[in-house]
Computed example of a mutant assay.
Amino acid sequence: MGVAIRTAGEEDRELIVRLLDEAFQDDPVSGWVFPGLEDRRAKHPGLMAAFTDIVLAAGRIDVTEDGSACALWLSMPADEGHDDHDAEDEGPAQVREAVDPDNERIETIGRLTAAVHPTGRAHEYLWMIGVAPGRQGEGLGTALIEAVLERCDREGLPAYLEASSARSRELYERLGFEPAGPVLDLPDGPAMWPLWREPRPHRPA
């Protein structure tokens, strides 16, 4: 049975924020950004809201019709970042200021992931994908990703992401992603895996 997917709009903002918050509360990277449980419960939704607003404005959010899973995508042009260093440098600081000015790790993770992000070729960037905790393991995340990867294959576009857990890394590797450089070890924290997928030859139906 297929998974019905639609593009989220501004009216879906609260749904997306709540979904991402629930999906990533216990993620290793979220635990590193907000080490204290009470602090994470209080401030993590604000970080997910900041990410949601960025992608609603500049990218695309796909969501399953039942609201149980979503994927945040940005279309990155070739050589992104080389001609606009000021905007790139300000982004992580602006997110930190909006979410939790005293939390340096919010800015740190933004700068570290930006530093390893490939440039030179246009590609689709999977920023985040979240599945409701009670619906994980049903193939919803795979369906969301494959819908975009099929378009990437048709258009000859690569795709890129950073896996935040060993489990998610295995899923992405099954979908054709491969290491895109050294593992990113967060200071005194978990690892993140930059992964790249070359487009596959498209076979018309």
Rank of each mutant, 00 (worst) to 15 (best):
L149E: 14
L149G: 05
L149D: 13
L149S: 08
E150M: 11
E150P: 03
E150C: 13
E150I: 05
R151Y: 06
R151T: 01
R151A: 08
R151S: 07
R151V: 04
C152W: 06
C152R: 14
C152L: 05
C152N: 14
D153R: 13
D153F: 09
D153T: 10
D153C: 13
D153S: 13
R154D: 13
R154A: 15
R154F: 02
R154L: 14
R154Y: 04
R154W: 06
R154P: 10
E155P: 09
E155Y: 14
E155L: 13
E155M: 15
E155V: 05
E155A: 15
E155S: 14
E155T: 14
G156A: 01
G156P: 01
G156R: 04
G156T: 05
G156Y: 09
L157Y: 09
P158H: 13
P158Q: 10
P158R: 12
A159E: 13
A159S: 15
A159M: 14
A159R: 01
Y160E: 09
Y160P: 02
Y160H: 12
L161W: 11
L161C: 04
L161T: 15
L161P: 12
L161I: 09
E162I: 02
E162F: 01
E162H: 01
E162G: 03
A163T: 06
A163F: 07
A163W: 10
S164W: 02
S164T: 13
S164A: 04
S164C: 04
S164E: 11
S164F: 00
S165K: 10
S165I: 01
S165Q: 01
S165E: 01
A166K: 06
A166F: 07
R167E: 11
R167L: 04
R167M: 05
R167F: 04
S168M: 05
S168R: 00
S168F: 03
S168W: 06
S168P: 06
R169K: 11
R169L: 01
R169P: 00
E170F: 07
E170Q: 07
E170T: 15
L171F: 07
L171A: 04
L171S: 07
L171H: 03
L171E: 00
Y172V: 00
Y172H: 08
Y172I: 01
E173V: 00
E173M: 00
E173C: 00
E173K: 00
E173S: 00
R174Y: 03
R174A: 00
R174E: 00
L175W: 08
L175F: 02
L175Y: 02
L175S: 02
L175R: 02
L175C: 02
L175K: 01
G176R: 02
G176Y: 06
G176L: 06
F177P: 03
F177M: 05
F177D: 06
F177K: 03
F177A: 05
E178M: 09
E178F: 03
E178T: 15
E178W: 03
P179V: 07
P179D: 08
P179M: 08
P179E: 10
P179L: 07
A180T: 08
A180V: 03
A180C: 10
A180R: 11
A180P: 06
G181P: 14
G181Q: 08
G181Y: 12
G181K: 10
P182C: 11
P182A: 12
P182K: 12
P182L: 06
V183D: 06
V183F: 12
V183L: 08
V183H: 12
V183N: 04
V183W: 15
L184T: 12
L184V: 09
L184G: 07
L184C: 11
L184Y: 08
